[in-house]
């Protein structure tokens, strides 16, 4: 192998995921999500703003693959463009949650007992505040915006992540190898980076993959309530919310956005499950050899 160590590890994990049927499904769906998002930046079958007043709520046709909505806009094009907004939200929410979660986790297992006590207590108390409430509090001064969804999800999932990753981190923090590293004069920061974080990383990655799914769900709910993606910005929640009002008349239009959200969230959840098995060095000898 000429590849660097980390990239070969990455490719081994990918291969292990691909080897399983549901892993294949997850990888294909997630890859399509990224591809569609990128394509939608340069091309959609119809312009997003082209409204066709004569063909409102049209049935699927060659021009409009999934029909049109109440303003005559092309449903398929809006769903394509929605993919990129949801991808953007999911990625930023996960990055934010990961950063906050790792920071809180580090504080919770810190040797400074005042810091660790305060952070454990704070996380315990705040964990029961649901994401939607955080979003509401943010929406009061900020109005409906993509940022509200990202920050609310980031805070909510970050707290969750810290709580879930803490046992693993604590186990590593109390281990003999950390003790010996400290006795050699390693700093707390370096121990965190080289010993504790790698131990907690599998748990963190699985949890973040699940959080990405929850972020997609949260977007649809918050946008429907009017605190999420502002109107005019394409997103799956937006497509779902606009079709809701006319469900009595045009029930078919409502099927597509919900179906896409469900498939993508299933893929993210499955990916998390398969990832859990794939990155476990105990069950995968290939990972130990690399």
């Amino acid at each position: 192998m000429t590849k660097s160590k980390s990239s070969s590890k990455f490719s081994i994990v990918l291969r292990l995921i691909w080897r399983r049927g549901e892993g294949k499904f997850a990888l294909i769906v997630l890859a399509s999500w990224v591809v569609v998002s990128l394509v939608s930046l340069v091309w959609t079958p119809q312009s997003l703003w082209a409204t066709d007043g004569y063909h409102v709520w049209a049935k699927p046709s060659v021009a409009h693959w999934l029909g049109t909505d109440g303003t005559g806009a092309d449903v398929f094009s809006w769903l394509m463009a929605g993919a990129r907004t949801n991808l953007f939200i999911a990625i930023l929410a996960v990055v934010f949650a990961g950063a906050l979660g790792i920071l809180l986790m580090s504080a919770m297992v810190s040797r400074n007992s005042a810091l660790s006590n305060v952070s454990v207590v704070a996380v315990d108390a705040l964990i029961s505040i649901p994401t939607v409430l955080i979003a509401l509090i943010l929406a009061v001064p900020m109005g409906a915006s993509v940022a509200v969804v990202i920050i609310a999800c980031g805070i909510g999932y970050g707290l969750n992540l810290a709580r879930i990753a803490r046992p693993q981190a604590l186990l590593a923090a109390n281990s003999d190898y950390v003790g010996s590293a400290l006795s050699y004069g390693a700093s707390g920061f370096s121990v965190m980076l080289h010993h504790i974080l790698p131990n907690a990383m599998p748990t963190i990655m699985v949890q973040l993959s699940l959080s990405a799914g929850t972020a997609v769900l949260a977007e649809s709910g918050l946008t429907y309530l009017g605190f999420g993606v502002p109107s005019g910005v394409p997103s799956w929640g937006h497509s779902l919310a606009t079709s809701v009002k006319f469900i009595n008349v045009y029930p078919l239009t409502v099927l597509w956005p919900g179906l896409i959200v469900t498939i993508v969230v299933v893929a993210l959840n499955v990916f998390g499950d398969v990832l859990r098995d794939a990155i476990d060095p105990v069950t995968n000898p290939e990972l130990r050899r690399s």
Partner: peptide, 24 residues
């Protein structure tokens, strides 16, 4: 378990309305 947990609440409600709702 996996699919049930992935359904957006809004959409799940809509499907139930489409199935059982009075009038529609």
């Amino acid at each position: 378990a996996i699919v049930g947990g992935a359904i957006p609440a809004l959409w799940g409600g809509l499907l139930l309305i489409l199935l059982f709702g009075r009038g529609t």
